[in-house]
Computed example of a mutant assay.
Amino acid sequence: MRRFTTRIGVLAAAVMLACTAGGIAQSSAAPSAAPRAAAAAEEPAYFEMTDITGEPFVIKLTDSARIEEARRILSGEERDRLHVIGRIVKRREPYNPRWDFALNPDTVSFFEVSIEVCDATTPYVEDHLDEAGGAFLPGLYWCPWTSRLVRELPRS
């Protein structure tokens, strides 16, 4: 019975997280200058984030609306939805070589508040990556509550 209850709890948390992430992804971004958005759509942008540990983590954004949203966060124009949420990919990416995981660019968005089940620091995710996707970070969604964008990385 306990195992069944645990599975139901994990399933409920995953559904709640999917609803939270879905709501975040459906939010609209403020319109911006067309040339900048067009250029952003052609090329990905990379942003460094950190959390309470101070460890840097790089995210890749490919959606022009998300790129503009990230830039508004860095400029101080956006003051509410400042934290990063996305779905973990369990592989090392060249733009983020320090970590054995990255965020799927198609799932990255920003939030003001989220449920606790997806909160963890970057080093904790790294140390428990084999457990991610089950009771730990259901659905592989990660939303570090203390995350914040630090800077946009220059294009190389």
Results as ranks from 00 to 15, higher is better:
40 A>S: 11
40 A>M: 13
41 A>H: 05
41 A>V: 05
42 E>R: 12
43 E>D: 08
43 E>Q: 11
44 P>L: 14
44 P>F: 14
44 P>N: 10
45 A>S: 13
45 A>C: 09
46 Y>K: 02
46 Y>T: 05
47 F>H: 02
47 F>P: 01
48 E>K: 08
51 D>P: 03
52 I>S: 13
52 I>Q: 13
53 T>F: 00
53 T>I: 07
54 G>C: 06
54 G>V: 15
54 G>Y: 02
56 P>H: 03
56 P>F: 03
56 P>E: 06
56 P>C: 05
56 P>I: 00
57 F>Y: 05
57 F>C: 04
58 V>N: 11
58 V>D: 10
58 V>K: 09
59 I>H: 08
59 I>K: 13
60 K>C: 07
60 K>I: 06
60 K>L: 08
61 L>I: 02
64 S>H: 10
64 S>A: 07
65 A>P: 03
66 R>V: 03
66 R>Q: 14
66 R>S: 02
68 E>D: 01
69 E>F: 02
70 A>F: 06
70 A>C: 11
71 R>Y: 01
71 R>W: 00
71 R>G: 04
71 R>L: 09
72 R>K: 04
72 R>Q: 09
73 I>A: 00
73 I>H: 00
73 I>C: 04
74 L>E: 05
74 L>A: 04
74 L>K: 04
75 S>D: 09
75 S>N: 08
75 S>W: 01
76 G>Y: 15
76 G>N: 05
76 G>W: 09
77 E>C: 01
77 E>D: 14
78 E>A: 00
78 E>Y: 02
79 R>N: 09
79 R>Y: 01
79 R>D: 08
80 D>N: 10
81 R>P: 02
81 R>N: 05
81 R>L: 11
81 R>I: 05
82 L>N: 13
82 L>Q: 09
84 V>S: 04
84 V>E: 06
85 I>T: 15
85 I>Q: 06
85 I>A: 15
86 G>A: 06
87 R>V: 13
87 R>P: 03
88 I>G: 15
88 I>E: 07
89 V>Y: 00
90 K>H: 12
90 K>M: 05
90 K>Q: 12
90 K>V: 15
91 R>F: 13
91 R>W: 07
91 R>K: 14
93 E>R: 12
95 Y>L: 08
96 N>P: 03
96 N>R: 10
96 N>T: 10
97 P>H: 10
98 R>V: 02
98 R>Y: 11
98 R>M: 12
99 W>H: 14
99 W>V: 12
99 W>Q: 11
100 D>M: 03
100 D>W: 04
102 A>C: 14
103 L>H: 07
104 N>G: 04
104 N>F: 07
104 N>I: 09
105 P>D: 07
107 T>Y: 08
108 V>E: 07
108 V>W: 00
109 S>E: 11
111 F>C: 12
111 F>H: 02
112 E>K: 15
112 E>L: 12
113 V>E: 15
114 S>Y: 14
114 S>K: 01
114 S>C: 11
115 I>G: 15
115 I>M: 13
115 I>A: 15
115 I>Y: 14
116 E>C: 04
117 V>P: 01
117 V>D: 03
117 V>T: 12
117 V>E: 13
117 V>S: 13
117 V>L: 01
117 V>H: 13
118 C>G: 10
118 C>T: 14
118 C>L: 06
